[in-house]
Every structure is written in structure tokens, then in C-alpha cells.
Design a binder for these strands. Structure first.
Lengths: 217, 217, 217, 217
DNA sequence: TATGAATGAGCTTTCATTCAT
DNA sequence: AATGAATGAAAGCTCATTCAT
């Protein structure tokens, strides 16, 4: 009975191999054009085995969904647990996306191209995840409104959309143009620009307007 | 006035009918699951006629792309022609999306679910449109930086991503949750919230901070 | 009533135009891949008109068949009418093929690629033409056997096959390699070689064998 | 002997079954009208399996081509290896066709109706085979010219065309009229007639003309 | 566990043909 | 006579999935 453990590990290992192969192929070809055969080939196994481990193509997709959302939800929860300024929390979210893109670019790619929109795969069950994500983020926003960190004249839900949209926009561009971040400096520039605008706005501030010589750099 | 090209008109009419039917079906089922047969049925014609007018499913898709981007580009150009404050220009863009959603919800839906990401259909030729769009918007941002309307310490390209991402986020939610705008009031609330945050930021303003009882926890 | 003549001529003219266009396209693409649209385009008319004149693609094919076989049968009959040595008669047949290739290469091309074998189009009614052709040629052979011009220990039918096969072989090669005859000299070399071998055989003759120095040309 | 590769054998077996079914159906209907479904039905399998084994209809055709030409080339090479009189070599070629027609009539049928001409399937790659065949045969002819077995005043290439054309003519007739050889006697009569005419000519020989009582109109 | 032979639903596309104008 | 819009039969091919070994 205790012999099950090692084989269990081997099993997990295989499953992970297939999973990663699937991510790679789906990233490259898109979910629809990713054939089970391709995935098996990428994983170095026969295609029958994919069914052994994942049951069907749809289940494989669901496994990827799960992986993505679980990771994100965990990050959100961890973020929300601490009582930090909203700036810190939002920064954590942004970093989560950019860091994950460094570590598991395929997963982020798939999020952008297959999860985020892709009507082909949109089922109510799958949309549910988005709702949860927005709810969690909204909670952060609402909390910050209560502490007067964020303005309350705009619905927390709207703040959520604006914040997440701006973030997603960067991530999408990165992904779709296949541009890895050029070093941590660029990452910080993007992250701070994003947070800066969200929190303080894009408008040129009074101080500089006051200056008679204007922006004369 | 004197019916000069009657057959030509009828032709345009048919083409438009098929086009709209295609939008409807693609919106409902997604491009991949939209069969030519479905589109023909929706248009009340035989499937052969779809090929007569559009040549192939891919061409039909390209026609939709064209329709979408041309409309958007025209709107952008019109916007940019006038020398108005950046606020007005951005407002025009936002309104374009929301107004179009009132008039041609299918087209906007398809933009969100099939054009904006949907790796399956992403070809370099199609990505090109996005580049053009971002370039045009960036020009608006850069112009506003020069007139000191927008801060210059953040790249115009980044401002573009943030602005468009925020906008797209609202549109996507609307589309994916199948929520038409509940009247012009809601539309204005969203538009102004979006512009407000982008231009002035989400952070609680000085006035509230000034209050001695302020956020001091 | 006599006004019908000119329009009749115009009609014939159109029919001929379409016919030649059909030959051209069928030669280029093969019968199966030759679309009515292609033929109409080649003829500079609308495809509907092809149906006006020929009824269907099959009828068009039959018209070509007719044209081919009638020409050949006429040539054969003319040949057979005269009481000339068999050599002259066979030479006439060979020349018919080669001359026609100069004048109407498309027709000869189609004979080789679409009529001569091409199971796709082989119907009993069409095979019939071949029978007639072989019968007529056989008659020539049999006649020559009776006059002791040709040996009688080989069935006239067999002589027919051998003769026609040898001829067709040249024509096919010419057609399939798209090689027009390089001047009348080559044509005569081929024709005489063909007749020479058929009539006198390919074997080296006694006289040369007798010569001690052998083939010393 | 010890069933080493059972699955491999079964595989070969299946492939052969499909191949033969394809030959049968193509012979009956012609390549174009032979549907994959028909072939599968003939083979007693599902149409998907045809694709499993042959990839596409075109590949199936290529496999048949290969089978045909390889067999013929092998026969030619074997023939040419031995230093026999040209008569023997040519006889071997003729016998190859006739014997194969006994054993695999479908293959010969397909050669005549689909390979030999059939413009629809003629690609440069496929014409290449013909070139090779003619080259090999020409070599035999040229060799016989050098040994004074064949006359040298006619190009070896022309001799090739004449010989092969005559042969093909018999085979075609046999095939197109669906006439199996009526016993070995007929076969020999045809073979010897063919070789006789090719080598010695069809003309009535001197000896008979010398005879005073001859039919001497 | 692991393999890959076997199946067939499902889709796009072609193109001959019809027929209203 | 002439056009080309409209139709739909027909066929190839893909690929997820099943299952015997």
C-alpha cells in the first residue's frame, strides 16, 4: 500500500510533463490548432497516454484554467491578507503577472490568448473564474475606499476594471509581440508607470503648470 | 436617383445581409464554431452564396476585421484632426466604443472575443492593425505631452496601453456579461469615471487628506 | 427567313470561339480541372453562355470528341479511297497526326491526354470511336496483305496495333514533353523512321552484316 | 520464423489490403471518381484508416505509381544485366507486361488509364518516371546498335518509342476492352508478332515475292 | 501503464447547373 | 442572346476519442 507513493510521484511527474507540453503547444498554435498528437509528441509519449492522464482535450484545458486561476487567487489572497497600503497590494498584483511571465511565459501567454477572451472556450463555468477574480480585486479597492486611500466617487468595480485593464494591456502587448521584458529596469518602469497613473493620474500636475517656463527639459 | 445601378445595389445589399448574418453567428458561437451553413441559414440563403460573395471563411473574417478597424481608424483620425484638449479626444474614443456597442453590438462583441486576442486568428497581417491603432493613439498622447496636458515622465506608449486597457476592460465586461448599457446615465458614469481616473488618478485628493481626522490609521 | 443566315453565322462563330477556348483550357488543365468559368473567361464571355451553346460540360467534351474523330475518319477514308501502295497510305496517316499537331496542337494534346486513355471519360459510347478507327486501319492492313504488300502471317489487327502504337508513342512524347517539331526535317526523320521500322524492321540488314568492316559510318 | 514483429506484419498486411482495394476501385471508376470512402468500403475498413495509412488520396496514388514503376524498373534492370541478344531482352520486357497483366491486372489497367496519359495527374515529378523508363530502354537499343544487332540509321530513342508504343498498344487494347489473354497461345502469338514486326518489319519478304505463282497484281 | 490502430462526426470548399432578368 | 446570382450535391480531410493489445 505504501508502494503507491513512489508510483504516485512518477504519476505526478508524467502529468506535469504532459501539462507543460500542452502549455507549450497551445501557446504556439492556439488551443484549437493544438492537436493531442502534438502535445504527446512534445511530451515524448504516445497520444493515448494523454487520455490516460487528462481524459479529454477539454479536461486538459480545464486543468490549465485551474492552474492559472489558482495561482492568481492565491496571490490575491496573500496580498489581501496583509494590511498594507493599497499601493503595495496593487503593486503585488502587477508583479505577480510580470514575474510569472518570467517564470512561466507559456501560462501567461495562454491567459492572454485563450483564457482572457477567446469566445470559443467561454462557458459560464469558465466565466465564473473571472467573476471571482474581479470580486477579489474589487474587495481590495473597496477596502481602500473605506480607508480613504482611494476616492469613493467612483464605484470600486469600475476602479477594478480600470486597474486590471491597464495591467492586462501591458501584459497582452508583451505577449502578443513576443517581447520579454528587457531586464528588471524596464519592468520597474512599467510597473511604476502603471501604478502612478492609476493612483495619481496622467494629467500634468499643478506644480509644473505653475512654473512659468513650463516643461523645459 | 434614377436607378442607375440596380443590380449593384442589390449586390451590396446581399453582401451586407451576409455580413451581418456572419457577425451575428460569429458573435453567438465564436468564429471557429460558426459554420458557413449557419451563416447562410441566418442570412436566409444557400451556403454556396456565401462563397460567391466572400470566397472563403477566412475572407469573411478579413472583411469583418476591415470593417472594424476602418471604423475605428476613421474615428481616430476625425478625433485627432481637431485641436481640442486631450480630454475631449480621449472622450471621443471612449464614446466611439460605447456608441458602437449600441448600434452594432455584434461587431464590438467580435472585437472583444475574436479580434482583440484569439490566438487562433492572429496572423502578422492581423496584428498589424493593432500596431496602427496603438501608433495613432500614441500620437494623441505624445501631442498632449507636448502641450503639457499630460505628464511627460511616462512614455506616451505606456499611457496608450493604460488608457486603452482600461477602456477595453469596460467594453469586455459589458460584452462578456452580455450587459447592454443601462441608459445614457450609466454610460456617462463609466466614461467619466474612466477619464477621471486616467487623467486625475484614483487616489483620494488633498482636500480629504487635509481633514485633520483624515486617514491616519 | 434569309435573315437567319447572318445570325446563324455569328452563332457558328461564337460556338467556334467557345470550342477553341475549351480546347485551350482543357489542354492546359485537363478536362476535370477545366472549369466552365475558365473556358468562358478564355472565350471572353459569361459562363452562362457556354450552356447556351453546348448544354453541359459533357456535351462540350462530346463535341471535342466528335471533332477529333471526324477529322481522323475523314483522313482515313480519303487515304483508303485511293489505290496507292500501303506505304503511301500509312504515310498519310502519320502525316495527318503530325500536320494536325502543327495546326491544332490543342486538339492533338487533348487526344493524347484525355481521349486516348483517361478512364475518367471512358464510356462505351466513347470507346466505340476507337473500335471504328481500328477497324478502318485494319482494313488498310488487310488490303495490303491481300496484295502481298504486307506479310500475312500476322493478323491484320495486330499489325494495326503495332503501327498505331508506334505512331501514338511519338505523338504522345511530343505532346507530353511539350516539344513542337523542330522543323520539317525532324518531322520527316521521324515519319520515315517509323515507316521504315514498321515496314522493314529494326534488325540490321544482311548487306551491312556482310561488310567485314561492319557499321563503319 | 519466431513471430518477431507481429504488429509490423499486421500493419504491412493492412497497408497491402488498402492498396489492393484502391487499385480495384481506381481501376473500376478511375482515380478521380474513386472516393476514399469507396476504397475503404472495398477494403472493409473505415475511411479514416485510409488516411492513417496513406495520408491522402494523392499519396495513395503516388504509392501506386511507385509500385508500378519500381516493378518495371527492376524488370528492366534484370533484363539488361544479362548479355543476351536484343531479341531476348525485348522479349523479356514484353513478357513482363503480359505476365503482370495475368497476376495483377488492376495495376496494369491503372497504368494504361491513369499513369500512361491522364493529364489530370501528370506532374513533372510523375513525368520523370517516364523519362527514366525511356532512358533505360534506349540504353538497350543503343547497346544493340553497337553490336550491330539493330540498325543504326535510326536514333535509338526513336526505336524505343516505336517498340514501346507497339507494346503499349496491345496492352491498352487488352485493358480497355477488358479482354484477358485467351491462354498462353494467344500471348505467344502476340509477343512473337510484335517482336517479329519490330525486328524484321511488316513488309512481305523477298522469298514470297519471288514465287512466280504469287498474288502479284 | 502504455501504445497506436481504428472510427466517424463534422466541416470547408468546389463547381456544374439552373434560371430570373 | 447574354449575364451572373443562386443552389446544393459531393468529396476530401482533420482529429478527438475509443479500445484491443
Amino acid at each position: 500500500m505504501h508502494r503507491s507513493e513512489p508510483s504516485n510521484n512518477a504519476k505526478k511527474q508524467r502529468e506535469a510533463t504532459i501539462f507543460e507540453a500542452a502549455c507549450q503547444v497551445i501557446r504556439d498554435k492556439g488551443f484549437h490548432h493544438a492537436r493531442i498528437t502534438d502535445i504527446a509528441q512534445e511530451a515524448g509519449i504516445s497520444y493515448g497516454l494523454v487520455y490516460h492522464y487528462f481524459g479529454s482535450k477539454a479536461h486538459l484545458y480545464d486543468a490549465i484554467l485551474e492552474e492559472w486561476w489558482n495561482g492568481l487567487f492565491n496571490a490575491l489572497e496573500e496580498t489581501d491578507r496583509q494590511s498594507a497600503p493599497v499601493e503595495t497590494k496593487l503593486s503585488a498584483i502587477v508583479h505577480y503577472f510580470f514575474d510569472l511571465y518570467d517564470q512561466r511565459p507559456n501560462l501567461v501567454h495562454i491567459f492572454v490568448t485563450e483564457i482572457s477572451r477567446a469566445s470559443a472556450n467561454l462557458t459560464p463555468a469558465r466565466l465564473k473564474f473571472f467573476k471571482i477574480f474581479f470580486d477579489k480585486t474589487e474587495k481590495i479597492m473597496a477596502g481602500a475606499q473605506e480607508t480613504n486611500e482611494l476616492r469613493s466617487d467612483i464605484k470600486a468595480r469600475y476602479l477594478t476594471y480600470i486597474f486590471f485593464g491597464a495591467l492586462e494591456s501591458f501584459v497582452s502587448t508583451m505577449v502578443l509581440e513576443n517581447q520579454p521584458l528587457k531586464g528588471p529596469a524596464q519592468k520597474e518602469r512599467i510597473v511604476s508607470g502603471l501604478l502612478e497613473v492609476f493612483l495619481n493620474g496622467a494629467r500634468e500636475k499643478e506644480r509644473s503648470r505653475k512654473q512659468p517656463g513650463g516643461r523645459d527639459r
